[in-house]
C-alpha cells in the first residue's frame, strides 16, 4: 500500500512535468507559430525596439525555451531570484514566478483566489452529491412511478443545460425579477459568513444542478443494476428485510463508483470553475485563468494550469487509495 502511494506520487510529479512542459510549449511556440511576440504585450504603449529588448530581458523571454523552463522548474523547488543589482527580488519556494502583467508573485495571486473557488466547488459539491444520490436512489426504488419519471426528466434537462445559461436564467429570475438575491457578488467567509452563503446560493445551485443531474442518473442506473445482482437475490432469499438488503448490500456496491466520480469531478472543479466564475463575476482561480490567457500572462497561465492539473491527479490518487478500503476486491501490486 505504502509503495503504491509512493509510486503514484512519483507518477504525479512526472505528470506535472509533462503538463507544465506542454503549457510552456503552447505559449512559447504557439505565438511564434502564428507570428506574434509575447513581450510586446507587456511593453506598454511607447514600445520601441530598445524597450522591447529590455522588457524581454526583464521577463526572461530572451533566453532559449529550455533555459526558461529549467529556471521555472528550479524556482518551484528551490526558489529563484529575479533581476539583479539594486532591484533584485527573491521569489521563495514554491516560486511560480511573477505575473508579467502585474509583477505580483503568481503563488500569492492564486492563493488569494483559492477561497473563492473552494467555496464555490465544495459547497456545490456537497449539494450535488447529496441531492443527486438521494434522487437517484429514490428513483431506482420507485422505478416507473411518476416521481421517477419526473426526476429523470429534470435530470435529463439538467445534464443538457450549460451553467452559463442556467446562471443567467437564475440571475434574471432570482436577482432581477424577484430580488431574492440582489447584487450577487463574492464576499469573503471571514468578513461575514451569512453574506458569504447568501451570495453563493445561486452559483452553488447552478453549478450543482448540472452535476446533480448526472449523479442522479448514474446512481439510479447503478442501483438498478446492483439490485439485479445475484448476491442481492441471495440476501433476499435469506429472508433479510428489504430495507436491510438495500442499505447493507445495495448502497455499497451502487455508490462506490459514485464516490470515484465525485472525487474526480471535485478535483477538476477545484482547478477553477471557469464558466461559473465568469457568469457570476466571482474572482476565483478560473477567472484568473481566463484573464491571464487573454493577456498572455504566461506565468499566471502556467501556475493555474499546473494547479488545476495537480488537483485532478491528486483527486485520482486519493480516489484510488480510498478504493482499496471501500472495495476489497481491489489489490495493489
Amino acid at each position: 500500500m505504502g509503495r503504491f502511494v509512493i509510486r503514484r506520487l512519483l507518477g504525479v510529479v512526472v505528470l506535472m512535468f509533462i503538463v507544465s512542459a506542454a503549457t510552456f510549449a503552447v505559449f512559447f511556440l504557439g505565438p511564434k507559430f502564428v507570428g506574434a511576440d509575447v513581450a510586446r504585450n507587456f511593453c506598454g504603449r511607447v514600445c520601441n525596439e530598445q524597450s522591447l529588448v529590455e522588457v524581454k530581458a526583464k521577463l526572461g523571454l530572451d533566453k532559449p525555451i529550455y533555459d526558461q523552463y529549467g529556471a521555472y522548474v528550479k524556482g518551484i523547488f528551490v526558489g529563484r531570484t529575479f533581476g539583479s543589482g539594486e532591484t533584485a527580488r527573491d521569489c521563495p519556494v514554491p516560486c511560480l514566478g511573477y505575473s508579467f502583467k502585474t509583477d505580483l508573485p503568481v503563488w500569492n495571486q492564486m492563493t488569494d483566489r483559492l477561497p473563492v473557488t473552494f467555496s464555490l466547488a465544495i459547497g456545490a459539491g456537497l449539494i450535488w452529491l447529496v441531492s443527486g444520490v438521494a434522487v437517484g436512489i429514490l428513483s431506482a426504488l420507485r422505478r416507473g412511478t411518476l416521481f421517477d419519471r419526473a426526476a429523470m426528466s429534470v435530470a435529463l434537462a439538467g445534464v443538457s443545460l450549460p451553467v452559463y445559461f442556467t446562471g443567467l436564467v437564475a440571475l434574471s429570475v432570482f436577482s432581477y425579477k424577484f430580488k431574492w438575491f440582489v447584487n450577487v457578488h463574492y464576499s469573503g467567509f471571514t468578513d461575514n459568513p451569512a453574506e458569504w452563503a447568501k451570495n453563493l446560493v445561486l452559483p452553488w445551485i447552478c453549478l450543482a444542478f448540472l452535476y446533480a443531474a448526472t449523479y442522479a442518473r448514474l446512481t439510479r442506473a447503478n442501483m438498478l443494476e446492483t439490485m439485479g445482482e445475484d448476491y442481492i437475490r441471495t440476501a433476499r432469499a435469506k429472508g433479510l428485510p428489504e430495507k436491510v438488503v438495500i442499505r447493507k448490500h445495495g448502497f455499497r456496491a451502487a455508490l462506490t463508483p459514485i464516490v470515484t466520480i465525485f472525487g474526480l469531478d471535485l478535483g477538476g472543479l477545484l482547478g477553477g470553475a471557469i464558466l461559473t466564475e465568469s457568469v457570476f463575476g466571482f474572482p476565483g482561480v478560473g477567472k484568473l485563468a481566463v484573464d491571464a490567457i487573454g493577456q498572455q500572462d504566461l506565468p499566471v497561465i502556467l501556475g493555474v494550469t499546473l494547479f488545476a492539473g495537480f488537483f485532478i491527479v491528486m483527486a485520482n490518487l486519493i480516489v484510488d487509495v480510498l478504493y482499496a478500503y471501500v472495495d476489497p476486491r481491489v489489490r495493489y501490486s
Partner: peptide, 10 residues
C-alpha cells in the same frame, strides 16, 4: 489530467 478547458482556451 489536463485541465481541459484552461488548455482549450489557451
Amino acid at each position: 489530467a489536463f485541465p481541459l478547458l484552461v488548455f482549450a482556451i489557451s
